[in-house]
Amino acid sequence: MNEQELIQSVIGKLVAQGVIKGGGNTGVVASSAPACSRVAEGCDLDPVTLSPIDEVKVDNPKNMAALEAMRKSTPARIFMGRCGARQRTHSFLHFQADHAAAVDAVFLDVSGKCLEENGLFDVQTVVRDKDEYLMNPERGKQISDESQKTLLEKCTRGVQVQIIVVDGLSSTAIEANIADTVPALVQGLKAEGIGVGAPFFIRYGRVGVMDEVGELLNPDVVVELIGERPGLITAESMSAYMVYKPHRGTMEADRTIISNIHKGGTPPAEAGAHMATVVKQMMDFKASGVALSKAMKG
C-alpha cells in the first residue's frame, strides 16, 4: 500500500514538473499491472515467443536491404537495436535463452534413448559426476577399470578405424548430430574399403581419452566425435578429432580436427562423408595432424 502511494506520488511529481506526460504514461503503468499480477497468480499462459534473433531491429534504417544482407553474413548478434544505452528486451531474452541452452548442454547427460537409437553401448571415465568432471579435467582422460574390461570384451582389437562418441562439454551436440554423422562416416569408410570397429560412447570424457582407447584397442585410427564447449550462437556444435595410432604420448599436434559440425555450420552428414576422405589420407600417409600436412607436402 505504501508502495502504491509512493509510485503515485512520484508520477504526480514528474507530471507536475513536465518530465512525463500525465495521460499516456499512467496508462502504461495501469496496463502493465494486470500482466504482472497474472504471472504472480501462476496461471498457465502460453510461453513467450520471440521474433527470430536474426531479425534486424534497427529503427529507421537508411538501407534495410544492406543491414539484412550483413546480418545474414554472420551469426553474431548485430543490428539488435537498442533502447537508450541498453539492449532491448528482445535481445536480453534471447541472450538468456541461449545462455540457458549452453548451461544445459554442459550439465545434462546424453540420454539412454539417444545411445540406444544409435546403437552405442556406453562406458565411463574414472570421473563419478559432472562436478568432478568440470573440476578435474585430467580425470576425464582416463577410462575406469570396469569400462576397460567392458571394452576388451565387446570391441575387436586392431581394427582399422575405431569411432568413439564422447560427451565432452556438450551433450546437446552429441544428441543433435551423431545420428547423421556416424552413418555417413561409416558409409564413406566402407566405400573406401576401410574396416570399422563397433562405435561406443564414453561418458565424462575429454579429448585426450582417445589416447587411452588407442592403447587399449590398438586401432590404426581413432575418430572421436566430441561435444564442443557451447557458446551463445549454438550449443549443438560438435568436433571430430582424428589421430593415427593414438597412444599415451600423443601430442596435441598429432590431432587432426574438423570443428563446427552442426546444422548451422558444416552439415553433420556432409562432415561425416568428408571425414572418411581425411581418414583415408591418414591411412595412406600413416600420420595425422601437423605430421600429415607435412607428409602430404612431400
Partner: peptide, 14 residues
Amino acid sequence: EHDSGKVLGQSLRV
C-alpha cells in the same frame, strides 16, 4: 544448393 554433395555422391556410389 545444399552443402551435402559429398554425402549424396557417396550414397549414390554405394
